[in-house]
Computed example of a mutant assay.
Amino acid sequence: MAELMTIARPYAEAAFAVAKEKNQLTEWSEELANLSTIASDDAMQAMIGNPEYSDENVLSVFESVMGANLTAEGKNLLSVMAENKRLAALPGVSETFEELKAEEDKRVRATIITARKATVEQKKKLSAALNAKFDAEVEISYEEDPDLIAGIKIKVGDWAIDGSAVSQLNKLGAAIAQ
């Protein structure tokens, strides 16, 4: 999966540059999401990975499914990716494009995992702290994991804090073992 994301990044960055230049970030976002959905289909994945199908065959399926919603720029992106045997990376292109768009819009996605359901007051404090830390509008999704015992885990992109009791106990155990 990491390899596909590495492959996807240059395509996403190129698409983002074109979209930004033409002030079409939303349109590109929708088109890439649709292309990603098509590429993620099991039958389409099998077709993309099957050498019996030519690039033209695969592209014709994308074109027929997308219909009038496929722009000339989208078709160019598909052609280049097909030529380089990279169509399987389309979901990663869409995901990376969305990350770039969120950065541009000064939005950040965060996941907060707690042992018990966070209260409204706790959510307000966490939201304010994360908004200040990242100087952006942070979209937070909350999850519960009773295995944490107590405490909290926060994930924002590559940045993470593990303040769970389980983590602290593991650190204590490692320190005692040394």
Rank of each mutant, 00 (worst) to 15 (best):
F62V: 05
V58Q: 00
A128Y: 01
D135Y: 06
A33K: 03
E3C: 03
A136L: 05
N170T: 12
G163A: 05
Q24T: 14
K153P: 00
K75E: 08
K133Q: 07
L87R: 03
A43G: 04
Q122S: 12
N23Y: 10
D162T: 09
K20G: 05
E21C: 08
P51N: 03
F16L: 12
R86K: 14
L32S: 04
E13T: 12
T111I: 08
E143P: 02
E63H: 05
G157A: 09
S60E: 09
D135M: 10
T119L: 09
I7M: 03
D147H: 05
S54W: 09
E121S: 14
L25R: 06
K106I: 06
V156F: 10
A118M: 06
R86H: 08
A46M: 12
A72V: 10
E56Q: 11
G49H: 12
D158C: 06
E56W: 06
R116D: 10
K124A: 13
V80K: 04
A88N: 08
K101E: 11
E52D: 08
E56V: 15
E27K: 04
R109P: 00
I152N: 01
L126R: 00
A174S: 14
K106Y: 06
L25Q: 09
W28D: 02
V80G: 06
I152E: 03
A128W: 02
Q45K: 15
E13H: 09
D145Q: 08
